[in-house]
Amino acid sequence: MKREPLKFSISGALAGVANGLFGGGGGSILVPLLTRLCRLDQRTAFATSVAVILPLCVLSAAIYLFRGKLELMAALPYLIGGLIGGILAGKLFKGVRIAWLRRLFALLLLYGGVRCLL
């Protein structure tokens, strides 16, 4: 039992690296760590990852802004979209089938990854 905080710390730290370095993907690392290393059930892992990533995004976004890599106006329409999507997510989460979402997600990742590498 005593080792749980350590496991949570390791998981959070690895998500932090992705969050700062790539500006995202922290959740994609955190969810498998929370389920396998920390033994949370899937749904709890997904929701908990959102709560963990949020403060990391605040810090990373502040650093990107401070270092001149972020224009607020360019981000604004995506913020509005994110707001709408987040509200829907809270309402829909209970009923969603996560398994097929993950497969679609994986294919899109591979597509994007190959495009970035070529």
């Binding site: 993907g25 959740g27 994609s28 969810v31 892992a45 997904f46 929701a47 908990t48 990852s49 959102v50 990533i53 979209g81 994110g82 707001l83 709408i84 999507g85 987040g86 509200i87 829907l88 997510a89 809270g90 829909l92 989460f93 969603v96 996560i98 979402l101 993950r102 997600f105 990742l109």
Partner: peptide, 10 residues
């Protein structure tokens, strides 16, 4: 993507 983000699905 916000729906997926809210789910924590990436």
């Amino acid at each position: 993507t916000g729906i997926l983000s809210g789910f924590g699905v990436g």
